[in-house]
């Protein structure tokens, strides 16, 4: 076991160092990371920088931005700034949870399916295709609707629904990568050495497949934030009074002319968050793109 650890550590350590410098050096990554960190910090430090997002103050409904209420107040007199700041917690946490769950589920299914092949792979492949052919948002709406009717409205419904639509993209990418990696000569060579399937999967296939998956995961978080917001905008997502950007936007749509700030600030927040993740994802894609091999100038 000791050899095992030393071995793995050497390989991983070196790779991590290189990758870290590459990532931080890339401009898009840096920009994206900055935005995300700021938003995350904002959420983390919410109790310190904002007031109670649930406190209603009917006397001060629909007041425009002022030193007391930097983003104004909403239709129930709640401080909009606090709601947006706490909303960051909700959006980020829920989005990342969904991303992690669908990533684990999707990658596992995709990897196993791709590696084992045969009938299993045929069936799973078709299932993936079917899922992918359904328009995502409508599917989500339908699922959330069904779950709400069956189990009552809750945040877990949203998470479950989005996970169900989301795991497929991970499965598809992982399966694709595993299928192509399976036949690469270095994998065949490792099999020839007498390595077990486990060894091959975890030491060779998954590390080489990780790149595109990380890129997908990052871009995916942005997507999920949008989906949650869309569901919220339709009144189907995370329910009030929990502050969630899309749902706040939704509540603000009736006051666009009278109190535009209610819709504007959460909208900006959504935009920034998605932008941040997209930048990071695009930057990571640059970093993880396979280095062009030695030049064929031979």
């Amino acid at each position: 076991m000791v050899i095992e650890m030393e071995f793995a550590a050497r390989t991983i350590r070196l790779r991590a160092n290189e990758k870290l410098t590459a990532i931080l050096g890339n401009r898009m990554c840096f920009a994206g990371l900055t935005i995300i960190t700021l938003i995350a910090l904002m959420g983390l430090l919410a109790p310190l920088i904002a007031d109670d997002p649930y406190k209603t103050d009917l006397a001060n409904r629909l007041t425009p931005p002022s030193p007391d209420h930097p983003f104004g107040t909403d239709q129930l007199g709640r401080d909009l700034f606090s709601r947006v700041v706490y909303g960051a917690r909700v959006s980020l946490l829920v989005a990342i949870t969904i991303s992690l769950i669908s990533m684990t589920l999707g990658c596992l299914i995709g990897a196993v399916s791709g590696y084992i092949g045969g009938y299993l792979d045929d069936i799973i492949g078709r299932i993936i295709d079917v899922f992918l052919s359904i328009p995502e948002l409508i599917f989500n709406i339908a699922l959330v609707g069904i779950l709400c009717v069956s189990f009552g409205a809750s945040t877990w419904n949203v998470i479950l629904a989005i996970v169900i639509t989301n795991w497929v993209s991970y499965a598809r990418i992982t399966r694709g990568m595993v299928l192509s990696l399976k036949e690469r000569e270095f994998v065949v060579s490792t099999r020839a050495m007498g390595a077990s399937d486990f060894w091959i999967l975890f030491k060779h296939i998954i590390p080489n497949a990780v790149g595109p998956i990380i890129v997908l995961a990052t871009l995916n978080v942005g997507n999920i934030i949008m989906t949650i917001a869309s569901l919220g905008f339709l009144g189907l997502g995370i329910q009030p009074p929990t502050p969630e950007w899309g749902q706040i936007l939704n509540s603000g749509k009736n006051y666009i002319t009278t109190a535009p700030w209610i819709a504007t600030f959460p909208g900006l927040a959504i935009m920034l968050a998605v932008l941040g993740f997209n930048l990071l994802g695009d930057g990571l894609r640059d970093v993880f793109e396979p280095k062009s091999r030695r030049m064929s100038y031979g």
């Binding site: 071995f7 000569e185 270095f186 065949v188 020839a192 390595a195 080489n208 030695r294």
Partner: peptide, 27 residues
């Protein structure tokens, strides 16, 4: 054992040569 046709594909591109050669021993 096998010596494959494409030497540039024969080893995991993320592994150092030492690790690739030592792999059979490790397995």
């Amino acid at each position: 054992q096998l010596i494959p046709q494409h030497p540039d594909e024969a080893m995991d591109p993320r592994w150092k040569i030492f690790d690739s050669i030592a792999e059979p021993l490790k397995i």
